[in-house]
Amino acid sequence: MTDKLNPGVARDIGRRIRALREASGVSLSRLAQVSDVSRRMLTQIELGQANPSIGTVDKVAAALGTTFPGLLGVVDHAPPSGVEIWSTPDDSWAYLLRAVETRDLSVELWRLRLVGEETHRVTPSAGAPDSLIHVLEGRVRITGDDDRAADVAEGHTGTLAAGTEHRLAALTPVAAFLRVVMVPRAHP
């Protein structure tokens, strides 16, 4: 499974969360209450001792009035190759290539690669519209939480329905794809 952050990214995000929390005068207890992430987990994230899922970071970011890309500092300033968010020993990986934000929405462009039997879990974001994947190499199976599946071939685009958890898997030895994600921004 590929839903945990690279340790370096997790440490950077933890430092940024702490800095934003302290700058805004929010206590750990208050952030835990607003984000629905336990105080213990928040402490571990801030100290770089936890490897949270992207979904957990999204909750904390929203509670702080920012986004996952905002915590990484890649909104409109991403390096040309993006930021490696996670990777596995089998050479599956995900890069956040670029993000732009409006007052109401964060639009993220990701490039992912799945190798062999590895899968990637996509959790829904409240209020988010459908997202898209465009397969660059191989073939990808999208399986929803209702176990319905759709296969997307190289050069084609598939939809991940909003409000549904999905599992993405390679149907070929290697599958690479782009994913466009739109995340509603919380307004404090």
Results as ranks from 00 to 15, higher is better:
G55W: 00
G127N: 07
R103G: 15
H187T: 14
V115R: 15
A61P: 00
R179S: 04
G127A: 12
N51L: 05
T43M: 06
A50N: 04
R15H: 05
R185N: 13
A153C: 09
V74R: 04
L109M: 09
A186T: 11
G158R: 08
V37M: 08
T123W: 15
V60P: 02
L96Q: 07
A78W: 03
D76T: 03
D76E: 14
W93Q: 14
E165L: 06
M1W: 01
D151S: 14
V107W: 02
L112T: 04
R148M: 12
E137H: 15
L71W: 00
D58V: 06
V75R: 09
G48Y: 02
N51D: 05
I13C: 03
A149P: 07
S92G: 14
I17Y: 12
D147W: 13
H77Y: 01
D76M: 12
L132W: 11
T88W: 06
R11S: 05
D90F: 13
A94G: 13
D58T: 10
F68I: 09
S81F: 12
W86S: 14
Q49C: 01
A161H: 08
A62D: 00
R113M: 10
R11A: 10
L72K: 08
L171Y: 02
S53Q: 02
A186N: 07
A126C: 08
E101N: 02
S27L: 09
P79V: 03
D90W: 09
L132F: 13
E101W: 04
T123C: 09
L20H: 03
V75C: 06
V181L: 13
V140E: 08
A162H: 10
S125Q: 14
A78D: 01
F68V: 13
D130Y: 11
P79W: 02
E118H: 13
D91R: 14
I133K: 10
T143A: 14
A175Y: 03
A175L: 10
V181Y: 04
L42Q: 03
L136C: 08
V180L: 15
S131V: 06
N51G: 08
T172E: 11
G14T: 03
G158I: 06
A62F: 00
I13N: 02
A149K: 12
H166T: 02
P129F: 14
I54T: 08
I142E: 04
G73P: 00
D36F: 03
R185Q: 11
L114R: 02
Y95Q: 07
L72P: 00
S131I: 10
T119V: 15
S81H: 12
G127T: 05
D147F: 14
V181E: 12
V57T: 04
R167W: 09
H120D: 08
W86P: 00
S106V: 11
G65C: 05
L28G: 04
V183E: 05
V75W: 06
P7I: 12
G25Y: 05
E154R: 14
A169N: 05
H166D: 01
A169F: 02
A78V: 08
A170I: 03
G8Y: 08
R141M: 13
T102N: 12
A32P: 01
V83N: 01
N51E: 05
L105T: 01
F177P: 00
S29E: 15
I142Q: 11
G158K: 06
T172C: 11
T164A: 12
G65P: 00
E101R: 05
D151H: 10
E165D: 07
A150W: 09
T67G: 00
W110D: 02
S131W: 00
P79C: 07
R21S: 12
V115H: 07
I54V: 15
L28T: 03
